[in-house]
Nucleic acid binder design. Sequence first.
DNA 1: AAACTGTGTGTGCACGTGCACACATTCATT
DNA 2: AATGAATGTGTGCACGTGCACACACAGTTT
Lengths: 336, 336
Amino acid sequence: MTSPRRTRATVHDVAAQAGVSRGTVSRVLNGAGYVSADARARIEAAIAEVGYVRNTAARNLARSKTWAVGFVVHEPHQLFLEDPNIGSILLGTNEVVADADHQLVVLVVDSDRDAKRVSGYLRGGFVDGAVLVSARSDDTVADAIVEFGLPAAFVGHPAGRASVPHVRIDNRTAARQITERLLATGRRRVGMLASALDRDSGADRLEGFQQALGDRFDPRLVVDDPLYSYQSGVAGMAELLDREPALDGVFAASDAVAAGALETLRARGRRVPEDVGLVGFDDSAWATRSTPHLSTVRQPARDMGRAAARLVLDQLGGHEAHDVTLPTEIVWRDSA
Amino acid sequence: MTSPRRTRATVHDVAAQAGVSRGTVSRVLNGAGYVSADARARIEAAIAEVGYVRNTAARNLARSKTWAVGFVVHEPHQLFLEDPNIGSILLGTNEVVADADHQLVVLVVDSDRDAKRVSGYLRGGFVDGAVLVSARSDDTVADAIVEFGLPAAFVGHPAGRASVPHVRIDNRTAARQITERLLATGRRRVGMLASALDRDSGADRLEGFQQALGDRFDPRLVVDDPLYSYQSGVAGMAELLDREPALDGVFAASDAVAAGALETLRARGRRVPEDVGLVGFDDSAWATRSTPHLSTVRQPARDMGRAAARLVLDQLGGHEAHDVTLPTEIVWRDSA
DNA sequence: AAACTGTGTGTGCACGTGCACACATTCATT
DNA sequence: AATGAATGTGTGCACGTGCACACACAGTTT
């Protein structure tokens, strides 16, 4: 068993081994021409011999370009794992970033301490840009990025940040449309399980819901929770039924919330969709994993991830980045 | 609106602004004593004035220490997102790594091109060590790590890699125990939905299953699939029922697989647990999200993540790293 | 008065690379 | 024969930081 080298080989070692200078080695490594066939062969042999691998960190320092892009998720870890939307955004972003030969670096923020560390990381010259998912309005990581001037893109538009390019969906219109569709099934007492009202997504969905109901909107029939979680659906639904036993329609701010609501409805002996019509938001894996399958709004999460990546790459390429709004689609299944 | 700096401030700028030398600035930044109160105050003012943030990449180069640890997931993205075990391992690892003031960098490998890029990243001096999850036996990223001598730890032990420290559970014993428990409910024709036989986890679970059945083991009642996925459960269960309609017990190699099997069983009109007893593995979110809730093996995923992180940190601290085997627990619910 | 200690500060080099430039050689052109 | 281009190679500096060392000065000890 060979013991791991205490110190790695450098271009100097390669140059010495091949009997040439560092400059020539560098030319071989970086593909620029003007190297004799003989020198090239000797250098390639030397590289293999001394086991040279380029120190990318040093290269980045010299070139001041890292070929890495951060993907910052500001969510409780648990939710990061539970929410398939974030996963799909990650997929889309990675797709585009990898295709441009950059390395995506995923950073999860779940505490003030994390926020501090991640902010330092982003400013520390490790990445050329960053994609931020689900930033809240008082997001210190976002503050750090903006202040530092790091090329970035937000997925979802945190209130009060005009200056940062972002990718969004029209949450308000989508929420209005699915609520109208729910009302069209003849429901009379319709409530909402709202979430994350401190973000545009949460606030706009509530607004769309309210628009659809018009005069019939009753603030008592809105329960809200900071998180888009299964658990918040379980609890919120119980609260809603307590407030209005005659409830016959529910718009949940996400599929995870809807799935939780479904659990409570079942426990309380309400049939879905016969007694209560239920619609969700996201068209996540929850939608088809639940019984009955959920009617919901399809968010083009993967496209959003792709678009956000492009916004960052555009900026890195010196182009202007233009905000993007992507279309949603109503997916009608069995829950309403 | 201030336009983002084209070039960031350095220690030189700070030194010039404060009227001192770089060395003194460095001492202030790194906390080493021997700085007059006057100089310290001027430097701190200068730092704020020019908006200096340390270039951590350069610092790392100088110190040859990055304070970052890679977390490599070698899975199709889709599965990475679907499998809550990986998420929990990630949580545990991040917990310990963050506590040691290191930054966890998540890297997902889903293609040969990814593998190449990630290998380069790991060797490029961006991280001090790495945790590898679900490495297959012919894993090129693992090869790169071993060859390069990067301090690392595997979660799950890929066959034929004696030299790398790893964290594992005793899959064989756990599989044997839960199969025995399933048999104890009086099942006569018991099959298995096996997965990932190219990893220790998959192969050992099959072996444990076989041990429990002893003479009654029938290789025709084992269906296998490369992935621990919901979809593989759906398809595998159909195959198993086609081969043996009288089947009354199934051990699925993971909860996701069991959940898929449940779907097929329902579609084919088999009641669980009345007609068919079903047990899974992992005690993931699938287990309690399914109807009925799954009997399964609890894998201490979070602890495994923690242990792996410690293995890496131990090596970074110059200590020897000892392999860890963690205990499992059978969780008996309603599906058998 | 010389030698020593403690405190504060500046300078040079190293980390490992990339790149601009200078220089050397060959061969074709005027 | 002198100029020029094309090709090949070596050297110095820059990237931004940390650290070892040298130095300067005040106050204390022999």
